[in-house]
Amino acid sequence: MNKWTFPTQIYAGPDSLNRLTEFNNESILIICDPFLKDSPSLTYVIGLMDSKNKVTIYTDVVPDPPITHVVKGIEFMEGIKPSVIIAIGGGSCIDMSKGIAYFGRKLKHMDIKSFIAVPTTSGTGSEVTSFAVLTDSETQIKYPLVDDAVLPDEALLTPLFVKTSPPSVTAFSGMDVLVHALEAYVATAANNFTDALAQQAIELVFEYLPKCHKPTATEHDRMSMHEASCLAGLSFNKAGVGIVHAMAHQLGGQFHVPHGLANSMLLPYVIGFNCSHNPAVAKKYAHLSAKLGFAGHNASEVDKLAALIEAIVTLQHTLDCPMNLTAFGVDKAVSETKLDLMADRALEDMCYRFNPYPANHDDLIGLYKKVL
């Protein structure tokens, strides 16, 4: 039996931030990426609320949020006892805020009426997913926090913050959207509902991500990618992802490769691997390739799959994505010493179990070697 609910209320569009004007007499904690502090965009957001509420800013946010930073955030929050938490940032900021809000409610019994996510990148879909990834700084192991209780109560999709995203951030986060959708499309828990969300996200990415990477990107282009990110998040939150993510988490943990870029490096090889081991996956991806116009409907399955992978690689080159760890700046001899460790940890990653083929340790080693 499939149960379908989307608990997070989604406000989308240039005027979505007007939702914040409805708060009155609240203690509001804004958790945001440090570079947003004193920015005109953040000043605008604060101006929507500060005349009728007490607004506090917290900016101790770092990439791959460590568990220790979540603890520090909770300690800070205890001093102001917010009734509303607003996370404004990328995936790391939103994930850290999820941990702060979750444990604040669960362990500290704080009366947080509303937890709102405002994504500033079109990538993670974290604003509508029921898990967060936190890092143990000592071991560099990433731990998932999985619970519907970490879902934001509301998500505000606004083009305000993504208008100024650097090209590399746009590229890597956008490839993250594509991987979310392509993995969800063949994940073990996929169904017709998640497929519909994933397909639309994939279509939007191929059309709008190259446009968003250019300085001529319009507000419509940016908003379309923002919506693609959210659609992909809704899809994989129910369907799962797969070994691209399980393996990418280790590249991020060991070599600090941006998550979307790590996903991008692995994607073409994992698609080929899964297709070669699962005929149903090959058939599904071939159908998608034809539907997107990458190959003719009468083309062979092999040609359709080749066309899909070629389209992905072409997109990566268009976005100036490094295609392997060496191109990113990691010494090959160093990365080789981590292969067994990364493969072992990828097998333990929560994303692994949704992959449509149960890849083993040697399979993962082989895939990692392709991106050294």
Rank of each mutant, 00 (worst) to 15 (best):
K338Y: 08
I85S: 00
V205R: 00
L204E: 03
C32T: 14
V330W: 00
P152I: 09
V71K: 12
Q199I: 14
F236L: 06
A333F: 08
N274H: 04
C351H: 07
D153T: 11
P268A: 10
P279I: 13
T59G: 07
R353P: 04
V241G: 00
V313M: 09
G104A: 14
N360R: 12
H245T: 07
C351G: 03
L17H: 02
A198V: 12
T318Y: 04
A187D: 03
G272N: 13
T135S: 10
V281K: 08
T326G: 07
H287E: 10
I30T: 03
P210M: 11
L251I: 09
Q9L: 13
V302M: 13
P14M: 12
L234K: 00
D33T: 08
I94G: 00
V84T: 02
E183I: 05
S130H: 14
V302L: 14
T129L: 04
A232C: 06
S41E: 15
T326A: 14
F206P: 01
S224N: 12
Y58F: 14
L288Y: 02
T121A: 05
V186W: 03
I94L: 07
D38V: 10
V62S: 11
P144M: 07
I312D: 00
E227I: 14
Y352V: 05
G252C: 11
L372G: 04
S173I: 06
D60Y: 11
A189H: 12
A333K: 15
K142L: 11
K37L: 15
E227T: 11
T216N: 09
A282C: 06
L17D: 02
H226S: 14
P215K: 13
V179G: 02
V55I: 14
E78R: 15
T43Q: 15
T326H: 09
S126W: 08
D64A: 09
F294P: 01
P279S: 12
L308V: 11
N25H: 15
S130R: 10
L251P: 01
P66H: 04
S97M: 14
F255L: 11
E26S: 10
K284S: 09
M96K: 07
T120P: 11
F103K: 10
P167R: 15
P322G: 07
A12H: 05
H180G: 02
M323H: 04
G47K: 09
G260M: 09
E154D: 10
T158G: 07
I31H: 00
K3C: 09
W4G: 07
T164S: 14
F115V: 08
H249K: 06
I10W: 05
P268W: 07
T218P: 06
